[in-house]
Amino acid sequence: MLLTVAVIGAPHGLRGEVRLDLRTDDPERRLAVGNVLETEPADAGPLTVTRARTAPDGATFVIFDEARDRTAAEALRGVRLVVESDEDEGDDDEGWYPHELVGLRAVHVDGRELGTVAALEHLPAQDVLVVTEPDGGEARVPFVAELVPDVDPGAGTVTLDPPRGIFAGDPAEWEDEGEDEEAGTDEGAGTRA
């Protein structure tokens, strides 16, 4: 499976430097000088990193050996830098595209329906799943393994383990209800299967 390392953004300056929209948790390894990265579309690459830097505002900029001027850098705008997944890869979510996730049913780890995935937002710190709840509200769940333990396009589902407060019909409320029931009399304790 191909994982997206970054999406190439606007050129910066005249010498081919471009800004990257990072999608990896390990930019130092993925964008090390000398690394050769495949691209989508494939005919835009492969691209060899000759310089990488992080600006004071956290933005990442690179120069590729194959694009040494602003015109060549502008032609790369929107190109995805991709790598084959490997055993060391920690987050499967790097490989998901918005079109693969939008429309999937969002279910809680206990099986309760939470809504439908409406979008995948790419924020500076991490990607975020936008889920439309049954009442029409929106919830945003950071797309990390701890909160999104399973994505199964074949089953049409994404499984979530959200913290308290993210959803209006918060699973935390369900847990509290369960605790109240368990804290009730002994008569109720024996009725559950």
Rank of each mutant, 00 (worst) to 15 (best):
Gly78Phe: 02
Gly78Arg: 11
Gly78Ile: 00
Arg80Pro: 00
Leu81Trp: 07
Val82Arg: 01
Val83Trp: 00
Glu84Gly: 12
Glu84His: 08
Glu84Phe: 11
Ser85Gly: 11
Ser85Lys: 04
Ser85Glu: 10
Asp86Pro: 00
Asp86Arg: 10
Asp86His: 13
Asp86Tyr: 04
Asp86Asn: 13
Glu87Phe: 08
Asp88Gly: 05
Asp88Ser: 15
Glu89Asp: 15
Asp91Gln: 10
Asp91Glu: 13
Asp92Phe: 14
Asp93Ala: 15
Glu94Arg: 14
Glu94Val: 11
Glu94Gly: 05
Gly95Ala: 15
Gly95His: 10
Gly95Gln: 14
Gly95Ile: 07
Trp96Gly: 04
Trp96Val: 02
Tyr97Thr: 12
Tyr97His: 13
Pro98Arg: 09
Pro98Ser: 13
His99Arg: 07
His99Glu: 12
His99Ala: 09
Glu100Cys: 04
Leu101Val: 05
Leu101Pro: 04
Val102Gly: 07
Val102Arg: 13
Gly103Ala: 03
Leu104Phe: 05
Leu104Thr: 01
Arg105Gly: 05
Arg105Ser: 09
Ala106Glu: 02
Val107Ile: 14
Val107Ala: 01
His108Met: 03
His108Ala: 13
Val109Gly: 02
Val109Gln: 12
Val109Phe: 11
Val109Tyr: 12
Asp110Ile: 07
Gly111Trp: 07
Gly111His: 09
Arg112Gln: 09
Arg112Pro: 01
Glu113Trp: 03
Glu113Ser: 08
Leu114His: 04
Gly115Arg: 02
Gly115Pro: 03
Gly115Thr: 07
Val117Leu: 06
Ala118Phe: 09
Ala118Asp: 15
Ala118Pro: 03
Ala118His: 10
Ala118Lys: 11
Ala118Cys: 05
Ala119Pro: 09
Ala119Met: 11
Leu120Tyr: 03
Leu120Lys: 07
Leu120Gly: 07
Leu120Phe: 05
Leu120Arg: 08
Glu121Gly: 02
His122Arg: 15
His122Gln: 13
Leu123Cys: 08
Leu123Lys: 14
Leu123Val: 08
